[in-house]
């Protein structure tokens, strides 16, 4: 009896793309394992962490969601430098509903998610035709304009912001809310982008004229993708508002735009899991480096450069490739 090595994914790929075509538990495990990892880590480890690291996990999840939102836009070729627009709008909508009308977070968060997504889509609709850097410029400028608008007109609490908002019942509740949002966005977006609909969205990015000649209105599709991404961003804003019991100008801060971008680049774009992984590396890393004081940014920047130079494809793409190359022994007649 001779033996040879065979890649595990070969047989699975050849038979079908659907799960029910699997023939063994081993193959089932092979497919399930990577999907189970984020769920188990997120939900299982959470109660074991100290309150400080729970807080870090919350902000990690927020950035991961913003990175996933960024990744959705990039799938349709929309380069965003303004995730803070989504965060800020979601934050102010939830804040205003809670501050002026005393709505509970149970309602402010869903309304801010959908409403914020819609509002951002409408705001960006006129520039949706712009490509690449031109679209990016507008997304960069819009949050800054909102900042000055709030400052100058003193609406929505002006520079003070809206304070004393309803908090979550406890840190663990908050943690599970954001994690649920994160898992929904991750698996939901992955499902969407791998469907035929996602095929068209990705087609718009690398070959828009071919999609147009197929009788599809690319601007309509871009608007839908923008809505999906912006909604996820607005959700994080609404969440952050109730977490901090505050909605204000920091919601439009540049951090919310830059960090997701860095996370997506480090993690690997176009997969949603990559940007999430990137956030889960970068945010805790930044916390650990806090001990270094002023030198923090220097080391942080250094790490960023190392990641990008060593794995330009992104960490997730690298891991995925390695995982698909796993081999097993099979017997050959």
């Amino acid at each position: 009896m001779k033996r040879r090595k065979e890649r595990i994914d070969r047989g699975i790929k050849a038979r079908s793309e659907d799960i029910f075509a699997l023939t063994s538990y081993r193959e089932m495990l092979y497919l399930l394992f990577p999907r189970a990892v984020p769920v188990v880590i997120l939900l299982g480890l959470t109660p074991l962490l100290s309150p400080y690291w729970q807080e870090v996990l919350i902000s990690t999840a927020v950035y991961a969601l913003l990175a996933i939102s960024w990744d959705m836009l990039i799938c349709a070729g929309l380069v965003s430098l303004g995730q803070s627009l989504f965060y800020g709008i979601g934050s102010y909508i939830a804040g205003a509903l809670n501050y002026y009308w005393h709505w509970s977070p149970l309602f402010t968060i869903p309304v801010a998610t959908v409403g914020g997504g819609l509002l951002c889509t409408i705001l960006l609709l006129p520039v949706l035709r712009l490509r690449g850097i031109y679209f990016a410029m507008v997304t960069l400028v819009l949050p800054l304009m909102f900042l000055r608008l709030v400052e100058a007109t003193r609406i929505l609490g002006g520079t003070e912001g809206l304070t004393g908002l309803t908090p979550f019942p406890g840190q663990l509740t908050a943690l599970y809310v954001i994690q649920l949002g994160l898992l929904c966005a991750l698996f939901g977006f992955r499902r969407i982008i791998n469907s035929d609909y996602g095929l068209i969205v990705r087609g718009i990015n690398d070959n828009d004229r071919a999609v147009m000649s197929a009788g599809l209105n690319i601007h309509w599709y871009k608007a839908q993708v923008l809505f999906l991404g912006a909604s996820v961003g607005a959700f994080t804003g609404a969440f952050g508002t109730h977490l901090d019991m505050f909605a204000g100008m920091p919601g439009f801060a540049l951090d919310y735009s830059i960090m997701p971008l860095a996370a997506a680049v480090v993690g690997g774009t176009g997969t949603f899991a990559g940007p999430m992984l990137g956030a889960f590396i970068l945010v805790p890393l930044s916390e650990i480096l806090r001990a270094l004081g002023a030198l923090r940014i220097v080391f942080y920047g250094l790490f960023l450069v190392i990641f990008v130079v060593a794995l330009p494809e992104g960490i997730f793409h690298y891991l995925q490739r390695k995982y698909h190359q796993f081999e097993r022994w099979v017997e050959v007649e």
């Binding site: 035929d196 095929l199 087609g203 690398d206 070959n207 071919a210 999609v211 197929a214 009788g215 599809l216």
Partner: peptide
């Protein structure tokens, strides 16, 4: 198109899924 415009990274048959998704079809 004079210069062919396929979706290069997709399998050939998946290229057709794009027009098959159109409202006309």
């Amino acid at each position: 198109f004079q210069m062919v415009r396929p979706f290069y990274q997709l399998p050939a048959y998946k290229n057709l899924v794009v027009p098959l998704y159109s409202p006309r079809v």
